[in-house]
Simulated assay, not measured.
Amino acid sequence: MTGFALGVDQEEWCGRLRALSARRLRPLAEKGEPGRVNRPLLAALGEEGLLERVFVSGALELCLLRESLAYGCTEAETALALQGLGAYPVLRAGSPAQRERWLPGVRAGRLVAAFALSEPGAGSDAAALALAAERDGGGPGRAAAGVDGVDGRGWRLTGEKRWISNAPEADFYTVFARTGEGPGAKGVTAFLVPADRPGLSGEALDMLSPHPIGSLAFDGVPVGPEDVLGEPGRGFRVAMDTLNLFRPSVGAFAVGMARAALDATLAHTSGRGAFGGVLADLQAVAHRVAEMATRTEAARLLVYAAAGAYDSGSPEVPRRAAMAKLLATETAQYVVDHAVQLHGAIALQRGHLLEHLYREVRAPRIYEGASEVQRTIIAKELYREVAAR
Rank of each mutant, 00 (worst) to 15 (best):
F4G: 11
A5V: 14
L6Q: 00
L6T: 00
G7D: 11
E11A: 12
E12I: 14
W13P: 07
R16F: 02
A19L: 13
L20Q: 09
A22L: 15
G35H: 01
R36K: 06
R39K: 15
R39G: 09
L41Y: 04
L41E: 03
A43R: 14
L45T: 13
G49L: 08
L51S: 03
R53A: 07
G58V: 03
L62Y: 07
C63P: 02
L65D: 02
L69I: 09
A70H: 06
A70K: 04
C73L: 09
E75N: 14
E77D: 13
E77I: 08
T78E: 06
T78Y: 00
L80E: 04
G86Q: 04
G94M: 01
P96W: 03
Q98T: 06
R99N: 09
E100S: 03
W102Y: 12
L103D: 01
G105M: 13
G105P: 06
A108C: 05
F115L: 06
A116M: 09
A116D: 04
S118E: 13
P120I: 12
G121C: 03
G123A: 11
A126G: 05
A128R: 10
A130G: 14
A132S: 15
G139R: 07
P140T: 12
P140N: 05
R142I: 10
G146D: 01
V147D: 08
V147E: 14
D148W: 08
T158Q: 10
G159E: 08
G159S: 10
G159M: 13
K161Y: 10
A167H: 05
P168L: 00
A170S: 05
A170I: 04
D171G: 14
F172T: 11
Y173L: 10
G180A: 03
E181C: 14
V188K: 07
L192W: 01
L200G: 11
L208P: 09
S209N: 14
I213T: 12
I213C: 10
G214H: 04
S215M: 12
A217R: 15
A217F: 15
P222E: 09
V223T: 05
E226Y: 06
V228W: 05
V228Q: 02
E231R: 15
G233L: 04
G235K: 12
V238Q: 01
A239Y: 01
M240H: 03
D241P: 02
T242D: 09
P248H: 07
V250H: 15
F253W: 08
A254K: 02
M257L: 15
A258E: 06
A261E: 05
D263R: 06
D263S: 05
L266Y: 06
A267C: 08
H268I: 06
G271E: 11
G273F: 10
G273W: 02
A274D: 02
L279E: 08
L282N: 01
Q283I: 13
H287I: 01
M292P: 07
R295A: 13
V303Q: 08
Y304V: 04
A305T: 00
G308E: 14
P315I: 11
P318N: 14
P318G: 14
A321R: 02
A321H: 03
A321D: 07
M323W: 09
M323D: 00
L326R: 11
A332T: 13
V336I: 15
V340E: 08
H343F: 15
G344T: 13
Q349R: 14
Q349H: 11
R359N: 11
R359C: 10
E360W: 04
S371W: 02
V373N: 01
Q374N: 15
E381T: 07
R384P: 00
R384Q: 02
A388G: 07
